[in-house]
Design a protein around this nucleic acid. Structure first.
Lengths: 208, 188
DNA sequence: ATATTACTTTTCAAAGC
DNA sequence: GCTTTAAAAAGTAATAT
């Protein structure tokens, strides 16, 4: 009886210690990323489930915390790339991605497929674009999705190209370089997506 | 549909001296600190073999069972040619078959990701939808172009079964759209 | 600015760390 | 879990011309 109680207490305290450390990490990374409380709370919930299922064994707390944050961002539709989150940890993107896949498979956390439109708000505001431009970028992406142009493509690259077009047509031109930088993709990707979008959606660009 | 790669293990039931092989057989790589197996590349059929001191080997790169068998025979013949004594007949076991196929349709991956069970679709990480099929037990990488990769099969038949099954399933779920393809290559 | 090369994902065995 | 080997898919990245 006593022994059983002791074992249970020991396990509980081990989970508590793990959680306490994890919450510090979560708070640190979350603040560095400028995430709202709702995202941090959701991430904490996901992490708690992971610890209770013993998924953190053999892995660093930090990587699992980062993966929980990523899953939370995806659920709440706060656009953040895996790289952005991983940069504040000692682990690399690959390790965080591995933990994220583990969370998806082992926990019943449902994560919707990321929507390029979610990246528009972030990229647009970082560039100081008007709401009108962001709205037209979202419309371009909606059309692109309807003709099956977005399948398999990086949502950040798609959003970047849509913003490039929208800014151009709204007289708020930003260079591909500027957009690529804040979107976290290369200029080549922005250019490739841009070419495809204007060609397939028959968008007229006056400028040169 | 075509088989792209077959991974097989070959058991020779005898110990091998890899150091002696490295000295006498040309074009082999052996660095036990890096990897316990000796790497031997056969030019035709173009396959690569990892040979272990236990007498077991892994042969990769074959595109058909016939090619695999021919490769194993040639590898053993080559080793014998350079003075490596090999007794008994090799036991060949196919461990993994990788194949590619083309459905010639456009696939709505967003919809498929929502409707299919056991799938993973993360376009920021990889363009294909990863689907784990229970029967046959294989993994399929499905692309929006309608092309796909089937891996994890142990028999050729499982590949055909999996391709038919996923096509029917995507059709049922209405995740497929016909596409106008210019060049229709004829294949069997 | 475009062309190559290289990496992402999945699968599998081998022996050893 | 890692190390090594092969192969395809399509996208993206890094480097070369």
């Amino acid at each position: 009886r006593w022994r059983k109680w002791q074992i249970r207490a020991r396990i509980q305290s081990s989970i508590d210690r793990n959680l306490a450390q994890a919450m510090n990490e979560l708070e640190r990374i979350g603040n560095l990323l400028g995430l709202p409380k709702s995202v941090k709370d959701e991430a904490a919930l996901i992490y708690r489930k992971a610890v209770e299922k013993g998924l953190v064994r053999g892995r660093s707390i930090e990587s699992v915390v980062a993966a929980s944050i990523y899953a939370s961002c995806r659920r709440i539709k706060i656009a953040r790339t895996l790289d952005e989150i991983a940069q504040y940890t000692k682990a690399n993107r690959k390790e965080v991605a591995r933990c994220y896949r583990l969370l998806l498979r082992e926990l019943d956390v449902e994560v919707p497929v990321s929507d390029p439109k979610d990246y528009v708000t972030r990229i647009g505001s970082l560039l100081g674009l008007s709401g009108a431009s962001m709205k037209s970028a979202a419309e371009i992406l909606e059309k692109a999705k309807n003709v099956g142009l977005t399948a398999g493509k990086d949502p950040a690259g798609l959003a970047a190209a849509a913003i490039y077009i929208a800014a151009l047509t709204n007289d708020e031109r930003r260079t591909q370089k500027e957009i690529a930088q804040v979107a976290g993709v290369t200029e080549v990707t922005v250019r490739n997506r841009y070419k495809e979008l204007i060609q397939e959606l028959k968008i007229e660009i006056q400028n040169q | 549909m075509s088989i792209e790669n077959i991974v097989a293990t070959v058991t020779l039931e005898q110990q091998l001296d890899l150091y002696a092989m490295e000295r006498s057989v040309p074009n082999v790589e052996y660095d036990p600190d890096q990897f316990p197996g000796l790497i031997f590349r056969l030019e035709s059929p173009k396959v690569t073999s990892l040979i272990f001191k236990s007498g077991k080997m892994v042969v990769t790169g074959a595109k058909s069972t016939e090619e695999l068998i021919k490769s194993v025979k040639r590898i053993i013949k080559t080793l014998k040619k350079y003075g490596i004594k090999i007794t008994g007949k090799p036991k060949i076991q196919i461990q993994n078959i990788v194949a590619s196929a083309n459905m010639h349709v456009h696939v709505n991956l967003d919809k498929a990701a929502f409707l299919l069970e056991n799938n993973m679709y993360e376009p920021e990480q990889f363009p294909g939808l990863i689907f784990r099929m229970d029967d046959p037990r294989v993994v399929l990488l499905i692309f929006s172009s309608g092309k796909m990769v089937i891996t994890g099969a142990k028999r050729e038949e499982e590949v055909y079964k999996a391709v038919k099954k996923i096509f029917d399933k995507l059709n049922e779920l209405d995740c497929i759209r016909q596409i106008e393809e210019e060049e229709e290559e004829l294949e069997i």
